[in-house]
Design a binder for these strands. Structure first.
Lengths: 400, 400
DNA sequence: CTATTTAGTTTTCAACCTGAACTATATTGT
DNA sequence: ACAATATAGTTCAGGTTGAAAACTAAATAG
């Protein structure tokens, strides 16, 4: 009950306004706004904006980029943009690969390296060592390009405790209750590295770089080995009480359904997880990516077993989405992960199921398939880091 | 995307700290803290607390209550408490009755009046007139007791838009898209009257005056004519994108289930709504309260039809709760509304169902039955108003 | 080349918290 | 009784901050 609410101090005002100005610059990536425009956009006086911008320029987060001349009368303003000489690193540990990438403050992915690596069952230490090597390559390249790294985000396919930097459970990696040495990855970055759930990262990537531009509230459902998800409410990720919300894979969609590895019955994952779809479609065992490709071929050639398998998965995804939409008053659904490859076949089944179980709640036009590729989680993790920098620029300021 | 984030001004600091101090006083209802204790609790200096308290006392929200002598050495502090001479009004429009009550700032329900009234199908204007009469009685009593009314909250069984003060749809009242004249109810109260959903109000009452003292995160499921609900996350109501989250009644719990009035199939309401339970239990038609009483008798006497009907409702409530708990990472469930009367029979079924479909997520000890009576929604509505006063005391201050 | 318009800076001022010194009022020990 | 001590609360100087308004800077229009 007794949350330690910090007292408001005079300095808080500046902290907030620094972030407000920085955010205003970030929201207009093309315009390169002048101080005067920022003053109008934020409601702060020109004097205040000047003072705040001076701090931001000094800290290196913002650059002046020549005159902003638009043919109008009067003195031209000086264009401002987020510095492209500051960046954050997005990282991903997945079952089959590791990856790391550099996102500059402007939101451009400047570097992206992937390393094939079978991580299932490997020790966290050895995987982290591999990742640290990959990251140091990226860091070296960034350094060569004159880009200073401020922080990073790491996406892991499992339930995580971001605050503690621990992985509670990552079934597909066979990790349980491991504390990751996040400090190793970016030892010099002032904001450090923060751990996040992979599906949540992908949901956020979708928000910032995908369909989030159209939808403010949606359920993101990501097919992987399991079925993960993320809830975006008001253009923000809903993380839940312990940061582990969005686990749509174990919603009950068929009370009389088969037993699930979680101990329950009739979970969505039993119908829409990779193994379930492959089995139903008659795809022989093998590497996941290869089986997925074969499923795609079967679908394209109209194979009935594949078509029914995917339609069944879509049907149950629709049921889970219908319940979620009703419960949380959501109006859109975005499909990601392996569902993207089945997009043309699974989306109609989801639409039909939604129309059947929750008519009028999610219109067909608001069932979308992600267009971000395999980099979604990495982009999301980097984006989280980027936004945490933009949210608290004060610490980089001389007085911070 | 472009949320109008207000710039931070110097005065915001005081606004926040006024609320912080007021909140600190509210959190210690028994202790009647001194300024020095508040200083320690909030982290503000004694000087700042003194200045803030002076404003709060002047505005009438806080009273000094004699010396705080605890046998220790040193000058005794002056006890502070939320004024019992300021209050808010909770109001409820339901199918069978209207009610209004006065909650003082200390959180004590001082007055509570109920008026039997068949409101189903009545015009909003006539119902509001009846309610306004009831409220003016309460206001007169408050005035006689020297209590100044600051604001009010009105609970209505339907989907509402609180900001606009409109009822989107209240099926059981037969209201659709009506704008309520909330200003009529408490014309002199500086904070006005705010409209809320009944189930959400009940969920909040549970939070503030019921099991919320034990649980920080839970799903509240309220059986009424329909099945409503409320999601409490981190001791706060999760309202959703348009303030209409928590509609657990239309989650899909049985894909092959019967058609529902919402247009879907297999909704929870089809199994756990009043009509469904009465029909299954073989309770003849009649007034709702009377049928509920008869159901209670049948249950107590061990009537098999009644027992299976309630067990079946509990089974499906458990499925919906399991899905919700998984999706949102919740760990507790509170049953309210008509489920309270069936508590001893329905709770075990819910527990069993949860253990079956989401083992280890919600422990049996965390399935609770509400102990608040019919006044839950009213208490919640009043509590919302009370908290909005405590959150923005600045407007009552001389400088506000 | 002056008037006008827009950008950005400087100056003055008020709000408000901190920190330290100070006053007020109690208990304890002799 | 009375000094010592401890705790509560107030007063006042100091520093940070943004608002408001005056001012400087730099462009275009005629």
């Amino acid at each position: 009950m007794n949350e330690p609410v910090a007292p408001g101090r005079v300095g808080d005002v500046r902290r907030r306004n620094l972030s407000l100005v920085l955010d205003s610059i970030a929201r207009t990536p093309d315009a390169k706004p002048s101080r005067a425009q920022l003053s109008a956009a934020t409601g702060l006086t020109k004097a205040a904006v000047s003072s705040l911008v001076a701090d931001l320029v000094e800290s290196g987060l913002v650059s002046e980029v020549g005159l902003y001349r638009d043919g109008e009368r009067g003195r031209p303003g000086v264009g401002l943009e987020l510095s492209t000489r500051r960046g954050v690193v997005g990282m991903e540990i997945n079952v089959d690969y590791l990856s790391a990438g550099l996102l500059d403050l402007g939101g451009t992915l400047r570097i992206h390296r992937t390393l094939e690596s079978g991580n299932r069952g490997q020790s966290p230490e050895s995987v982290m060592s591999l990742l640290a090597g990959l990251v140091s390559d990226v860091a070296a390249e960034a350094s060569a390009a004159g880009i200073m790294l401020l922080g990073g985000g790491l996406a892991v396919p499992g339930l995580v405790d971001s605050a503690a930097g621990t992985v509670a459970t990552a079934p597909n990696l066979h990790w349980h209750g491991v504390a990751l040495q996040l400090d190793r990855l970016l030892p010099d970055a002032p904001f450090g590295t923060v751990l996040h759930n992979e599906a949540n990262c992908a949901a956020l990537a979708e928000l910032w770089y995908g369909h989030g531009l159209d939808f403010r509230d949606y359920l993101f459902i990501s097919g992987e080995v399991g079925v993960g998800g993320g809830l975006v409410i008001g253009s923000e990720l809903f993380a839940g009480p312990r940061g582990q919300a969005g686990e749509v894979g174990h919603m009950v969609v068929e009370p009389s359904g088969p037993d699930c590895s979680c101990g329950g019955h009739g979970c969505l994952e039993s119908f829409a997880g990779q193994e379930a779809i492959f089995a139903e479609a008659g795809i022989a065992p093998g590497a996941a990516s290869e089986r997925l490709a074969r499923l795609g071929e079967h679908l394209a050639s109209g194979d009935p077993a594949a078509l029914t398998a995917v339609a069944r998965a879509g049907h149950y995804v629709g049921i889970a989405a219908a319940s979620t939409a009703r419960l949380m008053n959501l109006s859109a659904v975005v499909l990601g992960g392996h569902f993207t490859q089945m997009g043309p076949w699974i989306a109609p089944a989801v639409v039909e199921s939604l129309a059947d179980y929750a008519p009028g709640v999610v219109s067909p036009a608001r069932v979308a398939v992600s267009e971000l590729g395999q980099s979604a989680a990495l982009l999301g993790a980097a984006g989280i880091a980027l936004r945490s920098v933009l949210a608290s620029p004060f610490s980089l300021t001389t007085s911070g």
